[in-house]
């Protein structure tokens, strides 16, 4: 089922609904620009709008950790690159995510990793916006899980392309982004083509 069917209004009064972790390829996440906040509260969730037409507060990804750098003196944080068949995720873990920092400390590239995190858009004064993923957890994974994730993400991406037209998020994406969501079909095909049958 598409998440578009039940956007943020699904948060009923007084009940907690965990934001689902969307499955999105690096190649699509990289193209995201639009980010917004639902509601006025300081704690209201923030979303980025995926070009295939769905809001996204959290993502789950499995890929190859290729690089890890420790940065900062007082405020130590890790910057890592995680690669999937379509591109690179920029993953960060700072002192606000102590658990994730400790997990990151134990990992040595190259390795398959599973990441749960929140995407955010960083717009530098000059140059292209950068999407980074603030890491909630990062754990050692394996090829079996990675391949499963590629299938899962391919299916989710195709579902968004097929079902988002007509939904509020789908229409908004068509207005905000130049390219048609259909162009991501090609990306999905290329990702799948790298798996062995």
């Amino acid at each position: 089922m598409m998440g578009n069917g039940r956007p943020a209004q699904a948060r009923r009064e007084g009940t907690f609904e965990r934001e689902p972790a969307r499955r999105v390829f690096a190649g699509e996440l990289r193209e995201s620009r639009v980010h917004f906040k639902e509601g006025q509260d300081e704690k209201s969730p923030t979303y980025i709008l995926l070009p295939t037409g769905e809001r996204c507060n959290r993502i789950f990804l499995v890929g190859t950790l290729t690089e890890k750098r420790k940065q900062g003196e007082q405020n130590l944080f890790y910057r890592a690159r995680v690669v999937d068949p379509t591109g690179t995720f920029f993953v960060m873990a700072g002192s606000y995510q102590p658990e994730a920092m400790q997990q990151m400390a134990r990992l040595e590239p190259p390795a398959f990793v599973s990441v749960v995190g929140k995407p955010s858009v960083y717009e530098p004064p000059d140059g292209a916006p950068l999407i980074s993923v603030r890491c909630e957890s990062i754990t050692l994974s394996d090829k079996d899980v990675r391949d499963h994730w590629v299938l899962d993400t391919a299916r989710a991406t195709l579902d968004r392309i097929d079902h988002s037209p007509g939904t509020p998020d789908g229409e908004r994406a068509r207005k905000e982004y130049a390219g048609e969501p259909a162009m991501f079909r090609r990306m999905v095909f290329d990702a799948l083509a790298q798996l062995k049958i």
């Binding site: 299938l151 391919a154 090609r186």
Partner: peptide, 20 residues
């Protein structure tokens, strides 16, 4: 635990190749 199911691949390849 769930594992990678290669038999799902063909169907998804078809879906993604449909617009080529």
């Amino acid at each position: 635990f769930l594992h990678y199911q290669p038999d799902e691949l063909a169907g998804l390849l078809n879906r993604s190749g449909g617009a080529l």
